[in-house]
Simulated scan of single mutants.
Amino acid sequence: MHVSNRVEFGHLIDNEEFNLVPLNPELWEIEKNRWDWERRYLNPGYLEVVEANSTVEMPCPDVYWFPVFTERFSQEMITTFEDFGKWSDGTHDDGRLEGGYESVPTVDIHMKQMGMEAEWLEILRSYIQPLQLKVFQGYNNEVGPPRAIMNFMVRYKPDEQPFLRPHHDTSTYTINVALNRPGDDYQGGGCRFVRYNCSVTDSRVGWVLMHPGRLTHLHEGLPTTHGTRYIIVSFVDP
């Protein structure tokens, strides 16, 4: 018998309890079939940027940019959430929240509504927390995923909700994932950090923008003037 570990001949797939209900069910396979999930959805640049000595882009003070997801992930997330279709109305009254009130409302769908909360927390633990430790040291939850109770996709449209007023996030740090491309899919949009008068408008599909949530980084969503802009937001308290 000849045995070699230099050639890959295949791998095992766990297809038990594969959920055929949602559109693009492979998005839910991060824990059961991680190897395939990473091949589909993890940006090839992620492994380079997560290295200890890698350079991290900082488009605004203490605002960092990382390649995390592929364009396939971004597009499938958009189509899956749009197929689900239960967008909030963007008002302060929000029955999904304890107390029923949202101080800074957006038109959004929560990960919990999609049955994707556990998978998203695993993404935060496996792929986002290692990046956070590179730039915001001293925050580390070693016994589980980062604490994040607000995880959702936001939709900006000129005739629906084109912008978001200046606000602080209820988080230690926030991530903002760009899901589509400015100039091609929509016009306008972006995030402006008021204290620094610094804006990030040239979003990159699948890239994560990470910034402090409270005190220093008052920010606003700039007006989307044409098309539809999609982002994923998580408020994280490690």
Rank of each mutant, 00 (worst) to 15 (best):
G10A: 00
L12S: 09
N15D: 11
E17C: 09
L20H: 14
P22V: 03
P25T: 02
E26V: 11
I30C: 09
K32A: 15
E38W: 00
R40D: 05
G45Q: 14
G45A: 08
E48K: 10
E51H: 12
N53D: 15
N53I: 05
M58Q: 15
M58R: 14
P61Y: 06
P61C: 06
P61M: 05
D62I: 10
F66N: 02
P67R: 07
R72V: 12
S74I: 01
Q75M: 15
I78D: 00
T80M: 14
F81W: 15
G85S: 12
G85V: 15
K86E: 15
W87I: 07
D89A: 02
G90V: 01
T91A: 05
D93N: 14
D94M: 00
D94N: 15
L97E: 02
E98V: 14
S103E: 10
S103R: 10
V104P: 04
T106Q: 03
I109W: 02
M116A: 12
E117Q: 13
E122L: 06
I123R: 01
Y127N: 04
Q137L: 06
Y139I: 15
Y139F: 11
Y139W: 08
E142I: 09
E142P: 10
E142K: 12
V143A: 12
I149R: 11
I149F: 11
M150A: 14
M150T: 14
E160G: 05
E160W: 10
L164Q: 13
P166T: 05
T170Q: 13
I175D: 01
A178W: 08
N180F: 00
R181L: 09
G183R: 07
D184E: 11
D185A: 12
Q187K: 08
Q187L: 09
G189A: 02
C191D: 03
R192Y: 04
V194G: 03
Y196E: 07
N197D: 11
D202E: 13
S203Y: 07
R204C: 01
W207M: 03
G213W: 02
G213S: 06
L215Y: 14
T216E: 07
L218K: 08
P223Q: 05
T228S: 12
V233R: 09
V233I: 14
S234N: 04
